[in-house]
Amino acid sequence: MIAARVRRMGGGHWLLLYALILGAWGLLYAMALPAALREGAQIYGADFLQSLCIVTPDAAGFGRIILMWALMSAAMMAPTALPAFATYEDLGHTGETRLGALVAGYLGVWLGFSMIAAGAQMALFQAGLLTAFGDSRSGIMSAVLLAVAGAYQFSPAKEACLSKCRRPLVFFMAHWDEGAARNGVRLGLVCLGCCWALMALAFVGGVMNLAFMGLATVIMVLEKLPDLGRWLTRPLGFVLLAASVWVLFTSI
């Protein structure tokens, strides 16, 4: 059964989706500043980057930050939804058109999230709480974000959203008549309910920190698996709360 599922996920429309995910990661890699340039900016200031014609996210404006968050959301969240996408296609046997509408609706929700996150990044940067690279300047803010993410791991809202992500068959059967696009939006909202707090930790780990993005993606993929995920959610909450306390005390 697993082998048959893998074969079905090798069609042209699936390859296009994989290319979208890999392309998003590739663009994020191209947009990320090398560590050497980050260190140089810390020593010589922002003029160092400008002299090399490097455009930092704050200088590029709101539109580029939205694009960056949209790419990050697509790269990180689309892999977590692959089992749900496959389940939807298995239910309908309708091919690439409806799957495309489902994915479009799903990513549309994350585009909305990207606009909010970009606005938050601009506001926090202007308030002096973030660097130009999206790294937190405030130990207190980092501790609060970690505490919120940790506490959310134990919340009924998180559990309700995770239960739908872990059982996509039941979820889609309940809303099948609403069509692919609306099911995609519903799935996107459920996944947003699962993962918004973990995504907000980008302001702690660094918005363009590829290592953080990769680790967070793996955690969110594993958390949505029915058997493994239920053993991960609460321990992760304890780890985040402990990290919050540690960051708070080390920043005082």
Rank of each mutant, 00 (worst) to 15 (best):
A157V: 10
R167Q: 13
A211N: 10
F154Q: 12
G188P: 07
V204H: 06
S163A: 15
L169R: 01
A174E: 15
S142D: 08
L169H: 09
M220A: 03
S163M: 14
K164I: 09
V170P: 02
A197T: 11
P156R: 07
G214C: 11
C195L: 10
H175M: 13
A149E: 03
G205N: 04
A211C: 10
L145Q: 02
P156Y: 11
C195D: 05
C161T: 06
L187T: 07
V144C: 06
L169W: 12
V190G: 01
M220D: 03
G193P: 02
V207L: 12
A211E: 12
W176I: 15
R182Y: 12
F172M: 00
W176H: 14
P156W: 10
S142Q: 09
C165D: 05
G206Y: 05
A160G: 02
A197H: 01
A160M: 09
A216Q: 08
P168K: 03
H175G: 02
K164M: 13
P156V: 10
V144F: 04
V170E: 12
L187N: 04
A157N: 00
G214A: 13
W196F: 11
R186A: 11
R182S: 09
M199H: 06
K158I: 04
W196P: 01
Y152H: 12
M141Y: 03
W176R: 14
L162Q: 07
V185I: 14
W196A: 04
A149Y: 00
A160F: 08
Q153T: 05
A216C: 13
V144S: 00
P168W: 08
F212K: 01
C165F: 06
G150N: 04
H175Y: 14
D177Y: 08
A157E: 08
R182F: 11
V185D: 00
G179L: 12
A181P: 05
A181M: 15
R167H: 15
P168T: 03
K164H: 15
L187V: 09
G150L: 09
L145N: 02
A147N: 06
A149H: 00
A211G: 11
V218W: 12
F203P: 04
A216F: 08
A151I: 12
V204Q: 07
Q153W: 00
A143E: 11
V190T: 15
L146F: 04
A200M: 11
V144Y: 00
E159P: 00
A143H: 07
A160L: 13
A157Y: 09
L187C: 06
V204D: 06
A197N: 03
A197Y: 02
G150H: 02
G206S: 07
V170Y: 10
A174N: 11
K158L: 05
